[in-house]
Structure formats: structure tokens, C-alpha cells
Amino acid sequence: MQIIEGAGTWAPPGEGANDWVEQFRVPNLSVGTYCIPAGGLDNQSPHTEDEIYVVTAGRARIVTPDGAAEVSTGSVIFVPAGEEHRFDDVTEDLALLVAFGPAYGSRTPRSANPG
């Protein structure tokens, strides 16, 4: 058993940018916190892993190719690997507990090193 300190807790991002902090990682799972300030823009790209978001604070809208939905504290969102998604219309500082399966970046192809 392990308590994951700070996961899902709002922290103001530095320099007005969004902030991703990974708090836990094993090969098949990673957990972290993604924060977007009110009025901020989400510029993430699709991930190679399945993803669960739990909104722990704030309000926004999530947009995918299939539609959009308003989210707020307590909302739980599943985004399959490879699906375009973005949070917009962030009206209150947004804190998201994020779980990736397998661990974030573990399916990302490594570039070939010719040397």
C-alpha cells in the first residue's frame, strides 16, 4: 500500500502555463495531477495510453471529436488511447487527478538512434 501525497491537489502553474506533475509510477499505471488556470488553454496532444481524469476542483468543458461536455468537481472522464481531447472554457481553476494505463509515455515509440 502507498499513499500518493498531493495527487489531484490544485497548485498554481508557474509562469501562467499548465502544469503536469506525475506523483506515482509503476509499469502498468501512472498517476499525476494536471492543473489549468481559469482562462488557460489546454494544448495537450493525444496520448498513447488510456486515461482517466477525475476533476478535483474547478469547471471547464472537455471536447473530443465525438462532442463536448461540461465538467466540474466530481466528474470522471475516460479517454481512450489516441483520442484527441482538450479542456476549454476553463471558468474556474481546474485540477485533475489523472491515471494512465499503462504508465504515461510507456507506449510512445522511441526514435531510432542511428549512432
Rank of each mutant, 00 (worst) to 15 (best):
V98I: 13
V79P: 05
P80C: 07
G82M: 01
G82H: 05
F87E: 03
T91L: 07
T64N: 03
A68D: 14
V98A: 15
L97P: 02
L96Y: 07
E70H: 07
T73W: 00
R59Q: 15
G82V: 04
E92W: 01
V63K: 08
F87L: 10
E84A: 14
S75I: 08
A95Y: 10
D89G: 12
A60E: 03
R61S: 13
H85G: 07
L94G: 12
I62C: 02
R61E: 12
E83Q: 15
E92G: 07
V76A: 09
E92F: 03
I77E: 06
A68H: 11
G82F: 04
S72Q: 13
R86L: 13
A69D: 14
F78S: 10
A69E: 12
L96Q: 10
A69H: 06
T73I: 03
D93L: 11
V76F: 00
E70V: 10
V76G: 00
R61P: 00
E84T: 09
V90R: 06
F87Q: 02
S72G: 11
T91M: 08
E83S: 11
T73K: 15
A68I: 04
E84M: 10
G82N: 04
A95S: 15
E84C: 07
R86N: 13
F78V: 09
V76S: 09
V76L: 05
L94M: 14
G82L: 02
E83V: 12
D89V: 12
E92A: 12
V71N: 01
S72E: 12
V63I: 10
L97K: 10
G74L: 06
F87K: 02
V71R: 00
L96H: 08
D93G: 13
A69K: 15
G82C: 05
I62Y: 14
G67T: 06
L97Q: 15
D89E: 14
T91H: 05
P65Y: 05
A68L: 07
P80G: 12
H85C: 09
A95E: 09
D89Y: 05
I77L: 13
P80V: 12
R61I: 13
L94K: 07
L96I: 15
D66T: 15
S75F: 03
T91F: 06
T91N: 11
F87W: 06
G82Q: 05
V90D: 12
V98W: 09
L96A: 10
V63N: 03
L96R: 08
T91C: 09
D66F: 01
D93I: 14
I62H: 05
S75W: 05
A81H: 02
L94H: 13
S75D: 04
F87P: 01
S75L: 03
P65R: 00
V76R: 03
E83H: 04
D66E: 13
V63L: 11
D89A: 15
T64W: 06
F87V: 08
